[in-house]
Simulated assay, not measured.
Amino acid sequence: MGFTLGPRAISAGYRLASFDQIGSTNSEALARANAGERGPMWFVTTEQTAGRGRRHRPWIAPRGNLAASVLETIDVAPATAATLGFAAGVALATALRNVAGSVSVPFSLKWPNDVLAGHAKLTGILLEAEAVAGRGLAVVVGMGTNVVAAPEGTPTPATSLRALGFEVTAEQLFTALSDSWAECRGIWDEGRGFGEIRRRWLALAAGLGQPVSVHTGQTTVSGIFDTIDDTGCMIVRTSTGDSVPISAGDVHFGQAASARVG
């Protein structure tokens, strides 16, 4: 079975490039953008050998997992483009629910860019962007999902759809994802619809209202995860009652956060 776009994605004008194996779907999408491709276009594989996550961490997709990147060319400020990551989280969670069938799994969204199944990481999201002459930004949203296998020894425990009891392939998940992305991308609407994306994201947010500790470089901010604001920053309410916006960092919830606070 090969990769295919869903009907909603086709109607929205998306195109597809699939690969038996590739180093990085994000790198391929950016290379195509630099060569003049403007999208919207998906780049997908079930085997990625040189993928990357946030902060240049490796993201290897062994055969059977899903590595998918979508290229969009948009005329918005970089800070607005960054909020597409929340649309990606909502789209992935929607796609996972749509292929779940009778399997009941509590999917949630961990700020800023992970999908969790229970307390384990299932999917990572990486946004990259480059300026395009006269056309704004070429934005690539990479989404890697552990379909048949999950890495071991990671800072956050990871799991796979197979380990959760899902009888689903990377190809089936991608078709669902292409449709849910087309829906969420339309809602996002160059950032004008981020309020609705934010509402949907918060409805699935992991750790909302719970103790959190966020490491931002050499600084640690601890408190309660209150919300995300209209730019996508995490708002942490500290013990002094201050509301601190966090734009990036490594997040720890629950006992890990409490231990760090102590």
Rank of each mutant, 00 (worst) to 15 (best):
L109P: 03
L137G: 01
S104W: 02
L66K: 08
G144K: 01
W59L: 08
G118I: 09
N98M: 14
A82Y: 00
V103I: 15
G89H: 08
R54M: 02
W59R: 05
E72N: 11
T49W: 05
L96Y: 10
G101H: 07
L126F: 10
E130M: 12
V99K: 15
T46V: 10
A129E: 03
A77W: 07
I60C: 08
A87H: 09
T83H: 00
L92D: 01
A50E: 13
T46G: 07
G144S: 02
A50F: 09
L96N: 09
A61R: 07
T73C: 13
A117E: 07
L92N: 04
V76E: 10
K121R: 10
N113Q: 11
L109T: 07
G89I: 10
V139F: 02
I125Q: 00
P78D: 08
A95W: 05
A50Q: 14
L71H: 03
N98Q: 15
L92R: 01
L92T: 12
L66D: 11
T46H: 08
G85C: 10
G118K: 03
R63N: 01
R54H: 09
V139Q: 00
T94R: 14
G144W: 01
R97F: 07
A95G: 06
V141W: 00
E72Q: 11
A68K: 11
G101E: 12
A68V: 15
A120G: 03
A91F: 14
V141R: 02
L127F: 04
W59T: 08
G118H: 06
T49I: 08
R57V: 07
V115S: 00
A91M: 13
R135D: 07
T123S: 15
F86G: 06
T80A: 04
H119R: 14
T49K: 04
T73I: 14
E130R: 15
E47V: 15
E47L: 12
F86H: 13
L109H: 02
A131D: 03
H56K: 02
A81M: 03
A138K: 07
Q48H: 05
W59H: 04
A93W: 12
E47I: 12
I74Q: 02
A120L: 05
S69E: 01
G64D: 11
G118W: 05
L137D: 01
R57E: 04
E72D: 11
P106V: 15
Q48A: 07
G136E: 06
V105Q: 13
I60N: 10
L84I: 14
G124P: 03
D114C: 05
A81I: 06
H119E: 15
P106K: 14
L96C: 08
A81K: 00
P106R: 12
R52K: 13
P58C: 06
G142F: 03
A82W: 00
A91I: 15
S69L: 10
V140M: 06
F107T: 14
V70W: 00
V70C: 07
G101P: 12
